[in-house]
C-alpha cells in the first residue's frame, strides 16, 4: 500500500492520541492492581498459604 492511502496525523492529533493511550494504560494497570489486592482482601492472607 502506498503512503498516499495512509492518514497522516497532525501534531495535535498525535498529542491527543498519546494522552488517551497513557490514560488507558494507567486505567488498565490500576484495574489489575485493584483486582489483585481485592482478591487478597476478600479471601484473606490464607490464600497465600495453600498446598501447591
Amino acid at each position: 500500500m502506498s503512503d498516499d492511502n495512509l492518514v497522516t496525523l497532525t501534531d495535535k492529533q498525535k498529542k491527543a492520541r498519546r494522552s488517551r493511550n497513557i490514560a488507558i494504560g494507567l486505567a488498565l494497570a490500576a484495574l489489575v492492581i485493584i483486582f489483585y489486592l481485592a482478591t487478597i482482601a476478600k479471601f484473606g492472607p490464607a490464600i497465600l498459604d495453600r498446598p501447591l
Partner: peptide
C-alpha cells in the same frame, strides 16, 4: 471511511473524556 468528509481523526484528550 477516510475519504468520508464527515470522518475525522479524534483530537479528544484524556482530559476531555474526564
Amino acid at each position: 471511511r477516510f475519504e468520508d468528509q464527515t470522518f475525522r481523526m479524534s483530537e479528544a484528550t484524556a482530559g476531555d473524556f474526564f
